[in-house]
Simulated assay, not measured.
Amino acid sequence: MLKANHVSKIYEDGTKAITDINLHVQSGDIYGFIGANGAGKSTLIKSIVGIHPFNEGEISIDGYSMKNDPVLCKKRMAYIPDTPDLYEHLTGMQYINFIADIFEVNLTERESSIEKYSSLFEMTGKLHHSIASYSHGMKQRIAIIAALVHQPSLFILDEPFVGLDPTASFQLKSLMQKHADNGGAVFFSTHVLEVAQKLCNKVAIIHNGKLVKNGLMEEVAGSKTLEDIFMEVRNESKNMDII
């Protein structure tokens, strides 16, 4: 469903943000992506969803190239950033309909999706309020509803649980699991390692722009916790820097 082959991103100042990234997210996967701040998580995610151009390699969604067919790729995915950038002069409903128009979602399908997800995330009675009046968590919920309105097969989420209360977090985790169970796929970054270990069947750890661990959860973590593995990666890097 999602393939990243030998992807590298170099910024204009010469900084290599990510180096030779290889990932394969398949139907049914919930794929966790973890790393320290500045490790390259958001850079890779923004390259996958077409926000950042990348210098080397190839990214494809359902066989379509992000470089050659970006619109077809984006129609197959939902991207939910860590900090939603919404049009705050609109109401929640206006914003969701705006996104639905972009994806050319017909009226019947959009009404069904809006009803389903606004109820799930307890936003039904708040859709006609101005986005400017929403809390951060409510803005995150609207971003989620809008991202899912076109029924995408691939979810790409960057720190999706930031700002969500326990109920909304639970509902989002349940939604991610059901989506994978129904043949979709989920790729998300998180600092909440306990959630990743319980929810994901696969995991990738990025450090200094490179994947240092990648594969099935039981193969990467074994009998250890993800926190243990993550700290081992950090300590190994520090020791190498000292040497």
Rank of each mutant, 00 (worst) to 15 (best):
L193A: 09
Q197S: 13
K210E: 14
N201G: 11
L193D: 05
N201V: 00
C200S: 11
K198C: 12
H207K: 12
G209C: 13
E218C: 02
G215Y: 00
M217C: 07
K224H: 14
N182F: 06
L193G: 06
F187D: 09
H191R: 03
E227N: 15
G209M: 10
L211G: 10
A204E: 08
N182L: 08
S189I: 07
K202N: 08
A180C: 04
G215F: 00
I206E: 11
M217V: 05
S189H: 08
E218G: 01
T190Y: 11
E227Q: 15
V212W: 01
G183W: 08
V195Y: 07
L216F: 05
V192D: 15
V195C: 06
G209L: 12
E194L: 13
G209W: 14
C200N: 11
L211K: 06
K198F: 09
E218L: 00
L216D: 09
E194S: 15
A196S: 10
S223H: 14
K210N: 13
V195K: 03
K198Y: 11
T225P: 08
N214F: 00
L193H: 03
F187M: 10
K210M: 14
K198A: 15
T190F: 07
N214K: 01
E218H: 03
N182D: 09
L193Y: 03
N208L: 14
E219A: 02
G209F: 13
N182E: 10
N208P: 02
L216I: 04
N214A: 03
I206R: 13
C200Y: 09
A180Q: 01
A196E: 06
N201Q: 11
G184F: 05
C200V: 06
T190M: 05
K202I: 01
V212F: 03
A221D: 01
H207D: 13
K198E: 15
K198S: 15
F187T: 05
F188P: 05
V192I: 15
V195F: 03
D181F: 09
A180H: 06
V192K: 06
A204M: 08
L226N: 12
A196W: 03
I205R: 01
K213W: 02
S223T: 15
L211P: 04
L226Q: 08
T190V: 05
A185G: 05
D181R: 10
A185H: 11
H207T: 09
E218N: 04
C200M: 14
F188V: 04
N182W: 06
V186T: 06
V192S: 11
Q197A: 10
I205W: 00
N208Y: 12
K202M: 04
G184V: 07
I206P: 12
E219L: 00
T225G: 13
L211D: 12
S223E: 14
K202E: 03
L226V: 04
K210D: 11
A204F: 09
H191G: 03
V186F: 08
G209S: 14
L199S: 11
N214M: 02
K198D: 15
E218P: 00
L193S: 07
F187V: 04
E194K: 15
G183Q: 07
V186D: 06
H191I: 00
D181T: 09
H207N: 15
F188R: 05
Q197P: 10
A196K: 02
A196Y: 03
H191C: 04
H207R: 11
E219H: 00
S223I: 08
A221C: 10
